[in-house]
């Protein structure tokens, strides 16, 4: 199947634009974070009672939270408006991001997550969409800057260092498991980036409250981190199992302690420890958050270090 160069070029443009729009959204959100009034009102502590439409629902910018606002200063209100624009821009970025992947898929006639560049893009998309879904439940869009920052860094690295020309895949990847395994793993690992970031904010809030005047209450951060992790963990678990099933038919064994498998196992154990820590006296709160951060760090380590530095069966960086 020949590669359609035109579509591939359009895909690259979309990717670049998505990163640009995310950067803009991050800057707008930064204004909101810096000058908006946050973390002071009780209203922020309560979660929105509006029904969550579901993860598969089309993502729209959440309406401005309806709460009886006291007359805030004009500056704070302007900053808030920036925050709302940041969310709208993020949605636009997601649109471009999706377009980049879809176009690459059509350009190559296969699923658009078959090398490191494409996989990174898919993973980041999962992270941003996760964040938008969270925003529908929790009025914390001024934190977008902290979520978009790592996403932009990952996408920049992906686009500059890992960029791979659109090409068909090697025989070992020609399997329907490429859809099932990689999607579930990318979803799981992309989603857990968000609780990783939120847990960092939680730790700051708890350990250094004097720095964290503009962060939401600790229990809100804890809730966001926990609920997202709990949603992502089974997806990730299933992804690892799908990987094992695929490995059984591609490599002759379902588990062989390939470096990627090892670190996937380690990450799984860390998240299992996170879940257990929340049921252990003395480990809730700060320690649990630290474990969550460790989990996200292991995931990123698995994505970059293991694929690029350690040679293994998962070294697909170049196609």
């Amino acid at each position: 199947m020949p590669v359609d160069e035109t579509l591939s070029t359009y895909s690259d443009w979309c990717y670049g634009s998505a990163v640009g729009v995310y950067v803009l959204a991050m800057l707008f959100s930064l204004v909101d974070q810096a000058f908006g009034r946050h973390g002071t009102r009780q209203a922020e502590r309560t979660e929105r009672t509006r029904e969550l439409v579901g993860a598969g629902a089309p993502v729209e910018p959440p309406e401005p939270p309806e709460r009886p606002e006291p007359a805030t200063s004009g500056r704070a209100e302007r900053a808030r408006r920036f925050g709302r624009m940041a969310v709208a821009l993020t949605v636009l970025g997601v649109g471009l991001h999706v377009a980049a992947l879809v176009l690459r898929g059509f350009a190559t006639g296969r699923v658009p997550w078959s090398n490191m560049y494409e996989y990174g893009a898919t993973l980041c998309l999962a992270a941003v969409i996760t964040w938008l879904v969270i925003l529908r439940r929790f009025a914390i869009q001024h934190l977008s800057v902290w979520v978009l920052l790592p996403v932009i860094v990952l996408m920049f690295l992906g686009g500059v260092v890992l960029y791979t020309e659109a090409a068909p895949v090697q025989p070992a990847l020609q399997s329907y498991w490429l859809v099932i395994h990689v999607v579930s793993i990318a979803l799981g690992s992309g989603m857990v980036l968000v609780p990783g970031v939120v847990s960092v904010l939680y730790l700051i809030k708890v350990r250094k409250p004097e720095w964290a005047g503009r962060l939401p209450a600790a229990d809100v951060l804890d809730q966001v981190a926990y609920r997202t992790t709990v949603f992502a963990f089974p997806i990730y678990t299933a992804g690892v199992i799908f990987g094992a099933i695929w490995a059984e038919s591609a490599w002759g064994r379902f588990w062989g302690w390939d470096p990627k498998e090892v670190v996937a196992f380690v990450a799984w154990i860390v998240y299992a420890a996170y879940l257990h820590s929340r049921a252990t006296a003395g480990w809730r709160g700060g320690r649990a958050a630290a474990i969550n951060i460790l989990g996200a760090a292991v995931m990123v380590f698995n994505l970059f270090f293991i694929n690029l530095v350690v040679a293994g069966l998962h070294s697909y960086a170049n196609g």
Binding site: H276, T280, W283
Partner: peptide, 20 residues
Amino acid sequence: MRTALILLFLLALAAMPGAL
């Protein structure tokens, strides 16, 4: 539970050299 947690961490730590 505390011991189980520590053992989980040890297991994760002990598995790492296999990747590196």
